[in-house]
């Protein structure tokens, strides 16, 4: 299995860049990373890598070049509904106007993935994320995302979220108006995605190694698919298929 994955990845490198046929770059899915005063980009190659995997494995058109946004730039927020916030230390305290802009963007359809490169529950990054989320949605607190949530089956069937590490066996999120607007991972997904220009993975994935890295990619793809399809995979027509496959997964002998 792992060998197959490696071969596939090698072959994938030989495949020409995926066809950029969208109406323009602005129509492609861009994972816009939020800039802030601090180490806002602990995994500089992560977003490009995950965008590439999304485009390769799914029908989604992605923008490979990194897109950075500031919360003070409302126009940029309006152009990029998918936002990615990463860090390995405490986030700064964003001013109220920035928080309001971010809130508006999420309420009108945006989606924010928070990825902690410092996987210490209760650490500085974790505390600052919780404080930020509380300011964004005081009435809709961060909650554990159920393993049955569609984000775990929006493309791949996943059981637990992992990243560079598997420190926290769940995702947390904020649900607003019936959909997840924020997903928070403390397992450093970016750390698993990051790959240098020579094709070397930048960080070791523990404890599961390559298979865990693959799961981290799958989680990233699922998040992108959820952002664009929402609860599509909970439509009744999908349920029997998913149930059957989940059954097979729990009892591979069938």
């Amino acid at each position: 299995m792992l060998r197959a994955i490696r071969i596939a990845c090698a072959l994938a490198c030989l495949v020409p860049a995926v066809s950029a046929r969208a109406m323009g770059d602005k129509d492609k899915l861009a994972l816009a990373q939020i800039q802030y005063a601090g180490n806002w980009n602990p995994r500089p190659t992560a977003t490009r890598r995950i965008a590439w995997e999304i485009a390769k494995r799914t029908s989604i058109d992605t923008q490979l070049d990194p897109v950075d946004v500031r919360l003070s730039d409302e126009a940029a927020l309006k152009r990029n509904p998918f936002l990615y916030l990463a860090g390995d230390a405490a986030l700064p305290t964003f001013d109220d106007a920035d928080v309001a802009r971010l809130r508006r963007a999420l309420q009108t359809g945006g989606f924010l993935v928070i990825d902690g490169a410092d996987p210490r529950p209760g650490g500085d990054f974790d505390r600052s994320v919780r404080a930020l989320v509380a300011r964004l949605f005081p009435r809709e607190p961060l909650h554990k995302i159920s393993p049955d949530h569609v984000v775990y089956k929006s493309f791949y069937l996943l059981k637990t979220p992992v990243g560079r590490v598997a420190a926290v066996p769940y995702l947390e999120g904020v649900t607003h108006d019936g959909r997840l607007v924020i997903v928070y991972s403390q397992n450093d997904m970016g750390g698993a995605w990051a790959r240098d220009n020579f094709g070397q993975w930048e960080h070791e994935v523990l404890p599961g190694g390559d298979s865990q890295r693959e799961m981290a990619f799958r989680l990233g793809i699922n998040l992108a698919m959820y952002a664009l399809c929402l609860d599509y995979k909970t439509d009744q027509v999908h349920v029997p298929f998913i149930l059957r496959r989940r059954q097979w997964q729990s009892d591979p002998r069938r």
């Binding site: 129509d27 899915l29 799914t58 029908s59 989604i60 058109d61 509904p81 359809g109 698919m225 952002a227 664009l228 399809c229 929402l230």
Partner: peptide
């Protein structure tokens, strides 16, 4: 034909 923001909205 493919997921997109237009589809999602």
């Amino acid at each position: 034909g493919r997921p997109s923001w237009d589809v999602r909205f």
